[in-house]
Write a protein that binds this DNA or RNA. Sequence first.
DNA 1: TGCAAAAATGCATCTCTTGCAGAAATGCCT
DNA 2: AGGCATTTCTGCAAGAGATGCATTTTTGCA
Lengths: 229, 229
Amino acid sequence: MTPDTEVPEAGLRERKKQQTRELIVRVALDLFVKQGFAATTIPEIADAADVSPRTVSSYFPAKEDLVFDLTAATFDRLEARLHERRDGETTAEALRDWIASEAPGWDDDQQMNVRKRVVHESEHLQAYSKRFIARGEELVAHSIASDLGGHPDDLEARMASAATLALFSVLNAHKDDAAAADGSGNCQGTHSREDAVELLDRALLFVSAGIRALQIARAEEASAHTLGT
Amino acid sequence: MTPDTEVPEAGLRERKKQQTRELIVRVALDLFVKQGFAATTIPEIADAADVSPRTVSSYFPAKEDLVFDLTAATFDRLEARLHERRDGETTAEALRDWIASEAPGWDDDQQMNVRKRVVHESEHLQAYSKRFIARGEELVAHSIASDLGGHPDDLEARMASAATLALFSVLNAHKDDAAAADGSGNCQGTHSREDAVELLDRALLFVSAGIRALQIARAEEASAHTLGT
DNA sequence: TGCAAAAATGCATCTCTTGCAGAAATGCCT
DNA sequence: AGGCATTTCTGCAAGAGATGCATTTTTGCA
């Protein structure tokens, strides 16, 4: 057993690992932008990062995961945030909190912008990105279900989470617009910093209205039954 | 030019092609059930279907497409239905119509049940299935946007379509439950025939309530501006 | 300094995917 | 019926990613 704290600072070894990982991602995204995703081979990436191809594959089970490394981390944090919310804290509140802490980085982060550009011109990657959205939906659905005291596979929870996550489609679409309108490949921050929070609020409004509508409908149905209609 | 009608009956050649395609799908699903998706190779499938491996790959660009052949066709019909709706017909109405005509086949169809079983035990296939859901969302988002006179990438359209398509998550989840509860692999119709339409109605209720909420919010915001708040 | 764990590497293999050219079949016209 | 054009199927081969395994190198710690 390690004597004291386990989380504070990872060993130097761990840090180096992380460093290598980031290097590979950086190099890979670079090549993807220059030559396209499909046209870039893993050995190429390995060369550029000064590691063996086998190492790349070890870090990233699928080539596509190189593109979504940050995305995965973002959703990791969502998962953590949803799990560690205080008693009584709503999923909506946790989401708001999470977005508020994530969004500020989205505009400036070079990685994010590069990723967007790469994904934008590859149907395959767009499809792959859905995996992460799906993961988000799963997380939110479970969280909402626990709020509502229902099952994660209930229509309400499912619709609510799907609608909430739709936010990302919008966000990405807007960024694409910005990038496209820009003409040049350079698509740095246009907006979305506070947009993200604002959009989420609208989404939450939508969702809560929807849920309420279903609850009312159910109540009416129940009373109708009681009255023997 | 062909003399008269062009659509009525496809040539015999076309029919045979379709026949081969279906044979391959049938055989493939069979093997997938028996040995699992990953453990089944394309040459195996080709052998079983008495065609060359190259032919299989020609018909189905990706091995996964063998699993979702019917799914793709279903969404083809959705696309057609949404395109050919009469003036004034709501997306919701078209959806209802579409579901009503599709759902009856879902329970009995052996293919569907087999597909579900295969997909259920493969994360990879579950992820792949999202591609079709995404396509559906795209279609519905466009349709709704044209109803609302907005852009398909507007939050409302996006949320509405996402929430609507969430129906399939629920449907599949329920069928999974049924299959799991059944114990034996035999998971034939438990419900969902009319469930699908009923669920859709609930979904549409949810969606319309959400949209209305957003519209109201927007209106209030506008009046607030006018009043100089 | 030396040892044990962890990481990186090299190698081999399997499978999918795709392009290309030739063979086979199908449809149609004379 | 025969012949021709088109479409499909087939066989071959190369390219790339994913993965298991054994080996070497690095790192952390006693």
